[in-house]
Amino acid sequence: MSGLGEWDTDAPIYDVEATSMADVDEETDEPLGAPDIVGERVAAEIDGLDLAAIAGGLVAATVTSEIHRQVKREVAPIVTEAVKGVLTPERLDALRQVAAAAAEAELSPPGEPEVVEDDVPTLYYGSVDEFVREFICPVFRRNVGEEGRADYRWSARWWESAEAITRLEALWRAWEHLRMDPSTGISVWLRDHADHHLGVLMSATGPWARSKDTAGPHEPLPYEAPPAGLFPDVRDA
C-alpha cells in the first residue's frame, strides 16, 4: 500500500469477476488461480536455494554429532579406568592432605611468620668489642693524635664514651646485616654508616677530642681491652 486508503498498484490483483466458473473449486467455491500463484512463488524460491550446500551442512553436522557421541561412549570408560589405576590410595591421601591444608589456610587468618632458627644468619662478630678490635682498628688506619699534630682523634679506651659505644654498636649491627648482600652491601655500609659515624667519632669535636692516644698512618688504631664482662659474646646467649 502506498498510502492510507490507497491500494498498492504494483501488487498483483486477482480479478474474481474475470475468473470463469471453470477456475472455481466446485466443492469450496475458492478460485483456483490464487493457489497456483503461491505455488509458483514457492517453487521459484526453492529453485533459488543451494540445496546441495544445505544438505551437505546438515549431513556434516549430523556426522560430527554422531562422532562426538560415539567417541564419548568409547573413550570415557578407558579414561575412567586409567584414572582409577593412577589414583592409588597413597595419592588420594596426599590430595586430601593438600586440600585440607589449602582449606585451613583459606579459613585461618594469617599470623606471624614462624621464625626458623636456621634462617637467622649467624653473627660474624660476637660483640662490639670484638668488632672494634678485629675490624675497625686494623682496617681504618689513620694518623691520629693530639690537636695540632693530626687531623683525626681516637681513644684506645673507646668504651669509656657512651656516644662512642652507641655509634660503634650501630656500625657493627649494620655491618652484620649488610655483609649478607654480596653485591653492594659493603659499599652501602661504608657510604651510609662507616663514613658518617667514624667521621663524627674521629673529628676534632667528637667524643675523643681530648684523647692523647697516637698512631701513625700505617699502624692499627690504639686499642685497650674493656673490663671483663662489659661486652659479652652474644653468640653464646
Rank of each mutant, 00 (worst) to 15 (best):
G206F: 07
D8T: 00
D29A: 05
G206S: 08
A34T: 10
T214P: 06
A225T: 09
A44K: 12
R133A: 11
G48M: 01
F231Q: 03
E66I: 06
G56Y: 10
G5E: 05
P35H: 07
D236F: 04
V42W: 10
P138H: 15
S155H: 02
S2I: 04
E40Y: 02
V188A: 04
A53F: 04
A215S: 12
D23S: 03
H193I: 07
R141T: 13
P31E: 00
T205F: 03
A53N: 06
G57T: 03
D118Q: 13
Q97I: 09
E30M: 06
A82N: 10
L51A: 08
Y125D: 02
V16W: 05
R210T: 06
D213A: 02
D236G: 08
R142P: 06
T88V: 09
P89L: 15
A44R: 13
E6S: 08
R173W: 00
H196L: 11
P182I: 07
Y223Q: 04
R73N: 11
T122M: 07
P31N: 04
K84Q: 14
P110E: 12
L198F: 04
Y152W: 00
A82R: 15
G5N: 00
G216Q: 02
A18C: 01
A99P: 12
A162M: 08
F231G: 01
H68M: 15
A55C: 03
R210N: 01
R157M: 13
R235S: 04
P110N: 11
E114I: 11
A228S: 15
T205L: 00
Q70F: 01
L4D: 08
A18L: 01
D93M: 10
P226A: 01
V139L: 13
R96H: 11
S155P: 07
A34V: 12
E27I: 08
E40V: 13
K212C: 05
H177T: 15
L178N: 09
T88P: 03
W158P: 08
I67D: 05
G199M: 01
H68I: 15
V200H: 01
W172S: 07
R167F: 10
R235N: 09
P113C: 10
T214Q: 12
R142Y: 11
F140W: 12
I67Q: 05
G111Y: 02
A164N: 08
F135T: 14
A34F: 05
V120R: 14
L49K: 03
R167Y: 11
V38L: 07
L51W: 00
M1F: 05
P222H: 03
G33V: 13
A170V: 00
V188Q: 10
E17Q: 08
P222T: 05
R91V: 13
R210H: 06
T9N: 03
E146Y: 01
Y14D: 11
E219C: 05
I67C: 06
V139K: 15
A22C: 10
R41Q: 06
V75S: 05
T80V: 09
L32N: 12
E6L: 02
P226Q: 11
L95K: 14
A101M: 12
W175D: 01
F131S: 14
V86T: 04
A101N: 10
V98I: 14
R91M: 14
L49S: 01
S187V: 09
G85S: 03
Q97Y: 04
E6H: 07
S20Y: 07
E104F: 02
Y124E: 14
A55H: 03
D195I: 04
A228E: 15
I54G: 05
I136L: 11
F231H: 09
H68R: 12
P110A: 14
E66F: 05
P77I: 02
